[in-house]
Design a protein around this nucleic acid. Structure first.
Lengths: 260, 260
DNA sequence: AATTTTGATGCATAAAAACGCGTAAAAATG
DNA sequence: CATTTTTACGCGTTTTTATGCATCAAAATT
């Protein structure tokens, strides 16, 4: 019996096929199982299994006959933004009451702020400065808010601009309100951040703004991170997802911080 | 017997049709089953089934004879970006070949550029300046591209920043390549734009860049708009969705413009 | 009201997907 | 090194899906 060596010579590994498929989808926006079967010299069955795998990893959208790219805009940020959505929305709703018509506001890039941006009623007029891509994008849907985007080098994981440009832009501003998320807040250490760049930017935001409002979920309270942003007395209001009368806040209240 | 190759060549996947229909509805506020049947080369029957599906997903409002948009004022940019996707992708693929590793590039906010941003291979290194939110967001998915966002006041319909800040930022730049879309290009009038702000920004881009590459679909060629951007000799290359040997381009070639 | 356009429904068919099974190579195990 | 176990595939077979067509019902149009 003749052994067909030729056939065996070139068979791609599964992983290689996957790479190939992803690359092709990226480039052509569409792949057909039949084409792939021919191109990769495996049965359509195998292609289908490949497609199913990639699809279950959310890397492609499998459809009858082939696959298409997954549409969605952002991935990692988007995932985070859907985390603890319930809490974030609670906070956002409370924070809404602090916005008055005609104000100039600066917002940090936190996912809670994104929630806030989503629910600002369309009859509110305001000017919002931000350095977060998703927040700016969200606000473009709003009919009357004026958006000023603060440019600079993009920090991909958080989809915000950072760096000197941002710092220098912000230090030239004067705003009424400043909404910012935080990674840690505590009476003695004040507000702290794990990221040096971010801590610096937040410092600028605070000195640029008349009132400082910190939005944070319960689990950030009493956490301390590496870099200091501001002592507690610089914070005007903390908005959280728990009851403002909770005893957790006693110390904060003594320092004159409002809890919402 | 004649085998009809043409017929076999392109049949869209159901999902693709759906996307096409949605894009068209948003753009023209109305679609007719008969038109779609011809455009998508399927029976009206199938179109009706498509429309029913989309309608049951509340994405469109199905009516006698066709369908209408379901109120909501989704961002007009996204609408445009999914329209004529095929052509835009063709252009983007061609344009890809012009990008070399390590270059500094500036991109305008055109939807064709968005397509380009989507398909840049992950092994390419480059620095990209842009003032388009969607493009910047798209590029955050790329592992190695450095993105610099040019800040300023946001122009919502196009999701780009405009204004003095943008102009002044760009005039301080020096880039290797400049990819820009256009609303009209013509041998005698050169490149033209309907929007004054945009025309001004594009002028800056051109003078900041070593090479100027214009991406445009066939239908923009020989159109003339209100505001001049640049005479034809400032353009190095035009990338379109049609064959570069097409006679349409003869005049352009005489002026030294490369066609891709 | 008559006529023309659309829409819905059932049916036929071809293509694609899923499922189960067998096999052979690769990896793990004793 | 022998032998299990696992993994990756391919091949039938059965289901499901996508689509067109014919027919009849429901509109819109005249």
């Amino acid at each position: 019996m003749v052994v067909n060596i030729i056939n065996d010579v070139q068979r791609m590994l599964k992983e290689e096929r996957h790479q190939y498929i992803l690359a092709k989808i990226k480039l052509s926006r569409k792949v057909l199982s039949t084409d792939l079967s021919i191109e990769l010299k495996v049965s359509e069955d195998t292609i289908r299994r490949d497609l199913n795998e990639l699809s279950s990893k959310k890397l492609i959208k499998k459809v009858h006959g082939g696959a298409l790219p997954i549409d969605n805009l952002a991935s990692s940020y988007l995932e985070r933004s859907n985390f603890n959505l319930e809490e974030k929305n609670t906070i956002a709703k409370k924070a809404l009451s602090l916005i008055k018509d005609g104000q100039v506001i600066i917002m940090s890039g936190s996912t809670t702020n994104l929630q806030l941006a989503k629910i600002i009623p369309s009859d509110i007029n305001a000017t919002i400065y931000t350095y977060s891509l998703p927040i700016a994008l969200e606000l473009t849907k709003h009919p009357s808010i004026e958006i000023i985007f603060i440019g600079g080098k993009l920090y991909k994981p958080a989809q915000v601009t950072i760096g000197l440009d941002v710092v220098s832009s912000i230090s030239q501003l004067r705003t009424d309100l400043c909404f910012m998320g935080t990674e840690g807040i505590n009476v003695s250490s004040g507000m702290t951040e794990p990221n040096w760049e971010v801590s610096h930017i937040k410092k600028c935001m605070i000195s640029a703004s008349n009132k400082v409002i910190v939005l944070c979920t319960k689990n950030k309270i009493n956490k301390i991170k590496r870099y200091a942003v501001a002592p507690i007395h610089k914070i005007d209001t903390i908005v959280t997802n728990i009851n403002p009368t909770d005893s957790t806040f006693n110390d904060f209240k003594e320092k004159g911080v409002k809890i919402l």
